[in-house]
Amino acid sequence: MLGLIGIGVIFAMVFGGYLLAGGKLGIILKSLPFEFMMIGGAATGAFLISNDSHGLRQTARDVGKVFKGPKWKPADYRDLLCLLFELIRLARSNPVGLEEHIEAPSNSSIFGRYPKIQSDHEAVDLICDTMRAASMNYDDPHQVEEVLDKRMETNRHHALHSSHALQSMADALPALGIVAAVLGVIKTMGSIDQPPEVLGKMIGGALVGTFLGVFLAYGLVGPFANKVRAVVEEDDHFYQLIREVLVANLHQHPANICIEVGRQNTPNGVRPSFTEIEESLRSLKQEAA
């Protein structure tokens, strides 16, 4: 919603101010289709050259994050802590019983209680791979922490591809706008024998190219790139929470302490309260009794 409001504010302020200042939209509207064809077409072509098919599909999906916002909501962080608590408690009381859950999480009754998390392959793989490694006595907390850091850095770099691609396009748009404007000037110079009022309109049309390139770069594509990056970084906290809890588990802290370590490392905006977690864990214990 905020994304749509922001776009509306941009268009209203830019073109509203132009009209209030006495500007006429006729020249812009007449030149806009051709200028947009040159600038938008060139930017799209450059984008196709710079990215493979996977990158194109990822960017198309990630543009939706500008309007949807982060995937993980406060309730999901609470559910994640409850899920990890159940798995840690089971790993310590019945290691053999844990295997069916980490080897086939899609059929797990524990993961099944949290369908949104269960449907996220990266979160599930991160949990299962780490707990599987611990069950194989690969339980040096420092080594596991290093492996998790490298894995998460790789995933973060991949997730930020769309942001980098959009920012590259934003950086190129002003220059492409100048190219379109120069072509408009060339066209104008070919009609230098025309009266001033005709030349004025032609020059105004040429300048629409410069305007459009800068407007698209700093008013739309650049903010889109920044928003995608912000959403990716915010969602990354969800996977960081998994890392914190599982590393704490390898240090052999009590299950409740492991969960509290994760809760304390959760950002303020999505951090569940201590009471909320205690009530959720108490309900899990009562169900298991």
Rank of each mutant, 00 (worst) to 15 (best):
F224E: 07
G269C: 05
T266M: 01
V231M: 05
R229P: 05
R271Y: 04
L216W: 12
T266G: 01
P272H: 03
I257N: 00
G222F: 11
K227I: 12
A225R: 11
N256M: 08
G219D: 14
F224V: 13
E234D: 10
H253N: 05
V247Y: 02
P272L: 04
I257R: 07
L246I: 10
V228S: 03
V231P: 00
R243N: 12
L220W: 13
E233V: 07
P267G: 09
V270S: 08
A230L: 07
Y239Q: 08
E233Q: 14
L250H: 03
C258R: 04
E233C: 07
L216T: 13
G269D: 14
L220C: 10
L250S: 03
F215T: 12
N226Q: 15
R243T: 08
I242L: 08
H251E: 08
N265L: 09
V232Q: 10
G219K: 14
E244D: 09
H237F: 11
H237C: 10
D235N: 14
I242M: 07
V245W: 05
V221F: 13
Q264P: 00
N249K: 00
G222Q: 15
G262W: 01
N265C: 02
Y218R: 13
P254T: 06
Q264M: 09
R263S: 02
H237D: 11
E233R: 12
D236W: 10
P272S: 04
P254R: 05
R263E: 02
V247E: 02
R271K: 15
Q264R: 11
I242H: 07
L250I: 04
R271T: 04
P254G: 06
G219I: 14
E244V: 11
V228E: 01
N256Y: 02
T266W: 00
R243Y: 07
L241V: 13
V232M: 08
G222T: 10
A255L: 00
G262K: 01
Q240L: 10
A217S: 15
I259F: 05
H253A: 07
Q252P: 00
H251Q: 09
Y218C: 05
V221Y: 13
T266A: 06
R271H: 04
L216A: 15
L246Y: 07
A217Y: 13
F215N: 14
R229T: 09
Q252N: 06
Y239K: 11
H237V: 04
L241S: 02
G219T: 15
L220S: 08
P272K: 02
P223A: 14
F215K: 12
G269P: 05
A225C: 12
N268K: 13
V221K: 12
P254Q: 05
N226Y: 09
V247G: 00
G262H: 02
R229M: 11
G219P: 14
E233G: 02
K227W: 06
H237W: 11
A255V: 02
R263N: 03
E260N: 10
F238S: 10
N249I: 00
E233M: 12
N268Y: 08
Q240V: 04
V270A: 08
A248R: 00
A230I: 02
G262N: 03
Y239R: 13
P254M: 03
D236F: 11
N256A: 09
H253C: 01
L241F: 00
A255S: 14
F224Q: 08
V247T: 06
A248C: 04
